[in-house]
Amino acid sequence: MKEIFKLGGILLLVTALASGALSMVNKITKPKIEEQKRLVVERALIAALPTADPKAIEKVIENDEILYYIGYTTQEKTDIAGYAFVAKKAGYSSVIETMVGVDTTGKIIGIKVMEEKETPGLGTKIEEIKYGESAPWFQLQFINRYAGELAVDKDNGPIRSITGATISSRAVTNSIKEGLEQLEKRLGGFKKQANPTQTEQVS
């Protein structure tokens, strides 16, 4: 019996030492890890709201939950460049999170996939940048589109899905569509498009 206490005591001491050492390491790395998490959101916001001043992006929070972001063109915050929100939906093997930015008329101006753990070589192609290009081709397809148009080719929409990864493609597309509709409701409607036919000519 005495031996058990002695052995248990030694084990406890070793574990306590280990925990102490780890708490020191944790103190050093914790701010760094939080910084990295913040950077992911920050970079995504800059990609989603290219026309906004990166220093003039505000959060709209309700019950501790970030509903959406407002980006202003200047730090004086007089003109709204657009809104951004995080679209989430379960893909094939993970929840895919995408930061989406729209202008005041509800037209998508930038998107960035922030989190996904889809099948390597298939679903991960939502982030694939082809050789010689600067942005992922799948995500570029969303630029300049409105919520009403969003659907993948298999659902008779204009978004070309990734070969072998329809589930991932559809998850991204539908999450953005649903997110946009929700945002529109929260904002009480987008501004009317200035002249829809003209926009089409430009693009």
Partner: peptide, 20 residues
């Protein structure tokens, strides 16, 4: 068990440093 504690400690260090 003591070896496991030693190993787990270094694994956690790697984990934290890599995350940061």
């Amino acid at each position: 068990p003591i070896y496991i504690v030693v190993i787990a400690t270094f694994v956690t260090i790697v984990d934290l440093v890599m995350a940061g």
